[in-house]
Each structure stands twice: as C-alpha cells, then as structure tokens.
Design a protein around this nucleic acid. Structure first.
Length: 587
DNA sequence: CGGACGTCGCATATTG
DNA sequence: CAACATGCGA
DNA sequence: GTCCG
C-alpha cells in the first residue's frame, strides 16, 4: 500500500488545471487502489480532491480496487472505531463499513471527470461490497454484479455496450463470473454439480416462471444440459480459453504467453468517428488492455504489442502528463462535437453526418428545421424519437417483454396444432439481454418454430423466419456481441483450414452467416488487389458451385449443426455460453 | 510503398 | 425501369 | 494507424 507516490515524471500537478472544473472539491479521498492508479489519483487531486492516508472521520470516499473483496475491506478497516453500517454481501457473510463513506471503483473518478460532476456513488460500488440479494430467486439484479455494482451507471454513455472497458483486470459484473470460472475462490461451493439455470432456455423449457430467468449467478461451474433446441453446457474454464483465443486471433495481439492475474494499466478510452483507423486503434487499445504489467517508463510502453509509433507517442504522453493533448483538442473541437451528436441519430452514419456538417448543420434542431437535406425514412424516425431511442430499457422490462412474447408464441403454436416437438421451439430474448446486461437499448427476440410447424406460413406477420435447421446459426448470430461475432467468423474464415478440409478437400475455411456455415476456399494471396466491392448482390459471374467474391469460392456441403455446440466444436473451440460471448465491446 | 483492415441484407441514390 | 453503387445497422 | 507483402 503506498498509494501516496507521485506520478512518474513529477509533472507539476495543477499546471493543466487552470480552468478545469474542480469536480472533486470537498471530497476527502482515500485510495486503496494500487500502483497503476497513480494517474487517477493525481487527476483527482488536481481537480480539488484531498487525499487522505486512511479512512478518517471526515473521509467522503474510498477508491477501491474493482475486485476488492469484503474480506480485504474488513482487513483494511481494522482499527476503525467510528460508527458503522452492516452490509450483507452474500454467502451469509457481511462486512461493517464506516458510516457516511462511499466506496467506489476507480471508474467513479475517471467517469466523473469528463462529466464535470460527481456521478452517483451507488453505481460504482465494488461488486465485492454490493449487498447480496436476500434469496437466490431475488438475484434478479446483481445478475453478474452489474446491477449491484451499478445499475447502468452509464445510461447515457457514448457507447451502448458499456462497462466493458474494465473487463479483464476488473472482475465486475459478468467478468466476475469469468474470473471465478478460471480461478474459483474460497467460498464458492464448486464441488456442487448442480445444474445452474443461468439463462432463459432452461426456464422456458421447464415451463417455469420467466421471472426467475435472470439468475446468472450461482456456482461458478455451470453444468448445463440440452433444453429444447439448444445446448447450453459449460464446465471448467474452457470457455475463457476460447474467448481469449478468439480475442487474440482477432486482434493479432499474441502477447507472448500472457495469462497473468489481474494487474494492469488503465483502460484507455475509445474514440469514434474514425473511419479507417478504428481497427488499428482498437488493436492498440486491446494490446494495452491485454498487457498485464504496470506501465511506468517509456521502455514499458515500447514493449506493448500492437502499438505503432503514433500510438506510442500518445501513450507516453499520457504516462508523463496524465493526459493527452489530444483529449483537450478533441474536447475543444466544435466539428467533432457536432458530428458526434449527429451520429447519434439513428440511421445516420459518418457520410451523412459529414455532409450535413458541410451544409451548415450544427444542431439537431438545425436538422429538424432544414428541408433541403432529404433525410432517409430511418433518419426521420431516428430524429423524431431521438430522446426515446437514447433511453435504455431496464433488464426487468426486457424480461417482461420476453415473457409476454413467449406466452403468446406458445399459445399460437398450440392453436396451430403444434405437436410434442414444441420442445424444439426457441423463443427468447437475445443480444445484450442474454449476455446479462443490466439494461438494453432494444429487445431482440428470436423465435424458432418447432419442426412440426415448419410449414407454417408466418411471413405475413414475421419478417425473419428461420428454418429449424438454421436456428443454431441464428442464435449464434444474434446472441453474440458484435465483436465476438466478428472474431468467430474471422476465426472460421482463416483459422481452421484443417477442419474445413474435412468437409471439402478444396476448402481452407468456413463462412458463417445467420443461417448456415459452409466451407469456402479463399485464395491465400487475399492481401492483394481487390475489386471495387464484394459481390453482395444476387447471382452473378461465377456459374457453378457457389458464387464468389474476390476469388473466394463457396463450397459444399454445408455444415449441419443441430445445435450451437456443434458450431463451436467444428471450429475447434470450446463451447462458450451466451453470457460470456463478448470481450471488450466498443460497439 | 500500396492495400487491407468482416460480412451481410436492406433502403436509397445514381446511372444507363 | 433495371442494374449498379453507396450508406447504414447489425 | 498498423501490419503485411
């Protein structure tokens, strides 16, 4: 513990301060966090916070490591004799915390700064100190700690798949699950082989109350069985390996045999608005996040993979000054601000936003009043419901929606004369909800009719109808986070030539869509000239056995996957349950 | 240095 | 009007 | 912005 060290470089604290809002004035802060928090500490102090060596009567906040356990907290608080409040933190354990002191993660500091005001402390409670639900059934929230730690906490954040930046090193939320998977800690009764209903499939198949489906908690080792049309089975830490494998492959950041315990640098911010560079920047950020050692010297920065010369300069600047000149520049950049706002209108991409800007649009009201811009239908809708669309939907509401749809669905099946194979019906919310997010920006419900009703024509009221043979692919497509989806496809494309060869001697990869998985051949020299645009459209040039684009050939036969586990197996990957299918979503 | 950086379907714009 | 190109979200 | 050929 010696949190009191100055940031490296000893840059005069306060120099950049001049006009910065003193966000933390009046705060008396105790830092329980570690070395790599030096910059955060420094910033908090620059902005008016007063650091204290230990909890005292006038302490307002304790900044904790995100993975702080109740036990650790208790240890650090030994010697505190003031008034306390008791918090039950699960497994019958409880901890006594000083009255009137807020316990928050470092995120509270870093997120409050750009907001220019203090964010609600409850939303940054370290999961280890989150009050445990009274009963398992009431675990509805705190599902994966998100709620307990902070419902949303980022409702109106820039990106919608929030909370991720802390992933790796900060086992909060769903990550906590992962970490427990990897390294079961004391109190968890991992010996139990109980089947844990961690996701909805089991609940509905068993005809149970949909309300209980939120239970993502439970013994770390989920042992899951086949239910309905889907498998959901996990055991041990393998899913994590798969996640890491895909992540490494996707980002090309093969950090030499790194799989160390949580220690890390601070998660960098992502920027939007970058068309082409974003991939490179994501990669650099990913490299930083994966890096498990504190960055203290410039030489340290040079060791991080994925950083090119430009990125290194920026990281080094942050290392030295605690901030980057680019941040101030970006904040002051009018055009950037306007574009960012315009991009928030659904249906608007960089092209439209830039065009409008060049035509003088500066605000949403400009956009509303202009008649010369020819908004698309989607953009009109997006503008009209701008505020509504920014609203997040609480998890409970998604659950309710899902329940209603499911009941109606099964009722309909019955009315249509669906038979006993109704067990092979799928009707569940997917997307971020399935991944355990405390709130969602939309409700995706995937319905797959049972084989006995495969002939049923529902096209007049459903736009997407999946044949039962395609449901595993649909699930895989809709259930995964975007980045996980990308990574999986990328892996299938280029990472499993061997497996593909077994299907077709000419194949060197697979192509996965939302309805099938087919072997493909892609010419090795794909990094070469390419024509204008891929042949997305209908049949063209190539005559026989599957069309192609850029020389890629689609081959036979398609891979038959009766369930999602097969997809993973064919790709040589350990099955990953839906709620673990993301890494670090910037999207 | 030049080119890729995932892939798809849909809606809309442009072109012939 | 059809064929193609672009923009967009997922 | 970075990697690859």
């Amino acid at each position: 513990m010696a949190p009191k060290r100055k940031a490296p470089g000893g840059v005069a604290a306060g120099s950049p301060a001049a006009k910065e809002p003193q966000v933390f004035s009046g705060c008396r802060l105790v830092f329980w966090a570690h070395r790599h928090m030096a910059v955060t500490q420094q910033r908090a102090k620059q902005l008016g916070g007063v650091q204290q060596p230990a909890v005292a009567a006038d302490t307002t906040h304790v900044i904790c490591p995100p993975n702080l356990t109740a036990q650790q907290a208790a240890d650090k608080l030994r010697g505190w004799s003031g008034p306390t409040r008791e918090v039950a933190v699960g497994q019958g354990a409880s901890v006594r915390l000083p009255e009137g002191v807020a316990f928050v993660t470092p995120d509270w500091v870093s997120r409050s700064i750009p907001k220019h005001h203090l964010l609600p402390e409850e939303q940054f409670l370290p999961p280890g100190l989150a009050p445990a639900p009274a009963s398992p059934a009431a675990a509805t929230q705190a599902a994966a700690g998100h709620d307990g730690a902070g419902t949303g906490g980022q409702q109106q954040q820039e990106q919608q798949e929030q909370q991720q930046p802390q992933q790796r090193e900060h086992p909060t939320g769903a990550d906590a699950e992962q970490h427990r998977d990897a390294a079961p800690a004391g109190p968890e009764p991992t010996s139990s082989t109980a089947t844990v209903p961690f996701s909805s499939q089991q609940m509905w198949a068993a005809g149970q109350d949909a309300q209980q489906q939120d239970v993502l908690q439970g013994p770390a080792f989920c042992r899951v069985e086949r239910r309905g049309s889907e498998f959901v089975a996990v055991q041990g830490a393998k899913p994590l390996q798969t996640v890491d494998k895909l992540r490494a492959y996707w980002f090309h950041t093969h950090t030499a045999g790194q799989e160390a315990p949580p220690t890390s640098p601070q998660p960098p911010k992502t920027s939007q608005l970058n068309g082409v560079c974003s991939h490179a920047i994501d990669k650099a950020v990913q490299g930083l996040i994966m890096w498990n050692e504190a960055l203290e010297s410039e030489e340290d920065v040079d060791k991080v993979p994925g950083l090119g010369p430009k990125s290194k300069v920026k990281v080094k600047e942050i290392l030295a000054k605690g901030t980057s000149s680019r941040i101030a520049a970006a904040a002051a950049d009018e055009q950037r601000k306007v574009l960012t706002t315009l991009l928030e209108v659904w249906g608007t991409g960089t092209a439209s936003a830039s065009r409008w800007y060049s035509l003088g649009v500066r605000t949403l009201d400009n956009l509303r009043s202009r008649t010369d811009l020819n908004l698309t239908e989607q953009q009109r809708v997006g503008l009209k419901y701008y505020d509504d669309l920014k609203q997040k939907i609480p998890r409970a509401e998604v659950a309710q929606t899902e329940k209603i749809v499911r009941e109606t669905c099964f009722e309909l099946i019955e009315r249509w004369g669906g038979t006993a194979d109704v067990e092979r019906t799928y009707c569940s919310a997917t997307g971020s909800y399935l991944r355990g997010k405390p709130q969602s920006s939309d409700v995706d419900i995937l319905i797959c009719l049972p084989p006995s009703l495969s002939h049923a024509d529902c096209h007049d009221f459903l736009t997407e109808v999946y044949a039962s043979s395609t449901t595993p692919f649909a699930l895989n497509y809709f259930g995964n986070s975007q980045s996980f989806c990308r990574a999986t496809r990328y892996w299938a494309n280029t990472g499993v030539a061997e497996a593909a060869r077994k299907y077709n001697a000419a194949a060197n990869g697979f192509k996965i869509s939302d309805r099938d998985m087919v072997p493909i051949y892609r010419p090795p020299a794909q990094r070469h000239h390419r024509r204008s645009r891929g042949g997305g459209g209908g049949s063209d040039s190539e005559g026989d056995a599957g069309a192609a684009d850029g020389g890629t050939t689609v081959l036979e036969p398609a891979v038959a996957c009766p369930d999602e586990t097969t997809i993973f197996r064919e790709l040589g990957l350990a099955y990953v349950p839906p709620h673990m299918r993301y890494f670090h979503d910037f999207f």
